[in-house]
Simulated scan of single mutants.
Amino acid sequence: MSTRIAKSNSPMRKLPRQGRSQATVEAIIEAGAHILGEKGWDDFSTNKVAELAGVSIGSLYQYFPDKQSLVEAIRRRHLDDCLAVMRGSLREGKAVEQFAEDLVRDMFAAHSINPGLHRKLLDEAQSSESMRDPNSAFEAEYLGHYTAAVAAYRTSRSGANERVAGMVLSDLMDGVVHNAARRGLLGSEELKQELIRLVRAYLTVAD
């Protein structure tokens, strides 16, 4: 995966501008994700990350002032993956059955890249206040995609609040997928099929 953290609210000390520095940052993030996923928060340290990444601790500190900022970069990359799933799922002209299938399978796939990492991000790693902000730019775009799905596919509009329905659909997806990660069930075809049916039924419900 490419480095996707060059944003105004980036946790990094400085942003990589050239190919070599971008490769260094990517190696650091990859090493950090591996150690956090395999060892957990208590064994996660900048020294271990630098060693695995093959860079000096000084090089790591050029970009990340502490291990919390590195965890935030790892978390933001995962959030970018989730946004990419939503953007891809809502292609124009797609039938609701295909939308539900693509959304569920692609979201499970995004969490299956490093399932141990997602369990640690959910339950062990500390998160910054910005990551918990329900009004963040990420939350606004993420919920916006679910709201757009409701607007595109829900068959009954009488008195429906599309934003509220989008939040329900988002929470439904996040709850099932995150708990699947916790339970080691990201590979369960039965669970995916059940969630696909649930998403499809919610979007085609008649009042």
Rank of each mutant, 00 (worst) to 15 (best):
R119M: 06
E162I: 08
A148D: 14
L169E: 06
L79R: 07
R197C: 13
A206Y: 04
Y61P: 03
S136P: 04
M173N: 11
R13H: 14
T147W: 02
E129M: 03
S21C: 04
E26G: 04
V85P: 00
E162G: 00
L83I: 12
T3M: 11
M1Q: 09
A31P: 01
L198V: 13
Y202W: 09
G175T: 05
N47G: 11
Y142M: 11
I74C: 08
S21I: 01
A180Q: 05
E72R: 07
L103I: 05
L186W: 13
P134E: 08
R75T: 08
P11K: 00
V96C: 14
V168G: 11
A137D: 11
H111C: 09
A181D: 02
Y142T: 02
L90H: 06
V96Y: 07
R77G: 13
A109F: 10
E129F: 01
Y153A: 03
F138C: 04
A180G: 07
V176D: 02
A84V: 05
E141C: 00
A140V: 14
A148E: 15
A125N: 04
G116M: 06
S136G: 09
P65I: 02
D123L: 13
Q193W: 00
Y146M: 07
A31V: 06
N47L: 12
D174Y: 03
V164R: 12
G93D: 11
W41K: 03
A152N: 07
M131Q: 07
R119L: 09
R132S: 10
A165C: 09
R105L: 10
A151E: 15
V55D: 07
S21P: 00
E129I: 05
A181P: 02
H78N: 13
M1F: 10
L52F: 09
G93R: 08
F99R: 09
V71P: 01
A181I: 00
M107Q: 07
L79P: 00
R200H: 15
R200W: 11
Q22M: 14
T204I: 08
L191G: 05
A160C: 14
E51A: 13
R132V: 00
Q18T: 10
D80R: 04
